[in-house]
């Protein structure tokens, strides 16, 4: 009996095994360990302590505020993102590349700068500061500021996930719909939307995860007022700086769970999109 012949140019099995081992090691040390550390630290003093930390009044207020911000931010960016995707992928106009660059810009701007720019406009010494003060409107150190900063940071997610798919699908189906008598809204709801629904959902999930987890931008505009302008990530920071590690890691674990659920959902969605491209029901 002869051993199976390996083509001479293929890597030796030991080399492949070595590479796979190295890759797993990198992934475990750099990615899995930090995640494990969060849960280990959170449970160090037992589950009841962790749950208590989450059920504490300020923590609950932070959770509530985070949910409110996400509930405002995500629909706004969903609408804007879908509109931008339609314009960019299905229509022709001059300056399209510039617009795409602008849409992606928030990704390459530091979150702290994202917070900073709104302070420059709405802060006490900002452009609109005196006017806002005169009319007793609070933007910075209040919920509107938190929402603005979060909108800026999560702004590209929806457009970015949907635009490539829409471009790839072209406008054949929309043109066919037009010749069959469909109006613009009918075409959107019946033809375009079903074709991108999985990508859209995936973009919304990512947008939501970032909106709930954003730290730098909201940190700048929040003012860290407990129970009022503290979101979950900011609450983690406060607890951590007060050496309440168990509490900090308990809330962090909750945020990490959100991240994990988002990842899992995204993987499932990609699976669904791959399988359901033809719509096999």
């Amino acid at each position: 009996m002869s051993a199976p012949v390996r083509p001479a140019h293929a890597d030796a099995p030991w080399a492949s095994a070595l590479l796979a081992g190295a890759a797993l090691l990198v992934a475990i040390v750099m990615l899995a360990l930090p995640l494990a550390a969060v849960f280990a630290e959170a449970l160090r003093r037992g589950l009841p302590v962790a749950i208590d930390a989450i059920m504490e009044e300020d923590a609950l207020a932070a959770i509530r505020l985070t949910l409110i911000i996400a509930a405002i931010t995500v629909p706004m960016n969903l609408m804007g993102g879908v509109a931008a995707a339609w314009a960019v992928a299905k229509c022709e106009f001059p300056g399209k590349r510039l617009l795409v660059t602008l849409i992606e810009l928030p990704f390459s701007v530091s979150p702290v700068i994202a917070g900073l720019i709104f302070v420059l406009i709405f802060g006490a010494k900002g452009w609109l500061g005196p006017w806002l003060q005169a009319h007793d409107i609070q933007v910075i150190f209040a919920v509107p500021g938190l929402v603005l900063a979060t909108v800026f940071v999560t702004f590209p997610f929806v457009a970015r996930t949907v635009i490539p798919l829409m471009q790839e699908q072209g406008r054949d189906e929309e043109e066919a719909a037009a010749t069959l008598g469909a109006s613009g809204p009918q075409t959107f709801w019946r033809v375009t939307l079903p074709n991108v629904k999985w990508a859209l959902l995936s973009g919304v999930l990512l947008c939501n995860a970032r909106a709930m987890g954003e730290f730098g931008a909201v940190s700048v505009v929040s003012g860290h007022i407990r129970g009022e302008t503290n979101t979950m990530p900011l609450h983690v920071e406060i607890l951590y700086n007060e050496y309440q590690f168990a509490g900090a890691f308990a809330v962090a674990a909750l945020l990490a769970l959100l991240g994990l659920v988002t990842l899992a959902a995204k993987t499932l969605l990609e699976h669904a999109a791959g399988r359901g491209a033809g719509g096999a029901a």
């Binding site: 054949d172 189906e173 074709n195």
Partner: peptide, 9 residues
């Protein structure tokens, strides 16, 4: 249409 442009879903 050339590639038929059927609604794939």
């Amino acid at each position: 249409f050339q590639q038929y442009a059927l609604f794939r879903h």
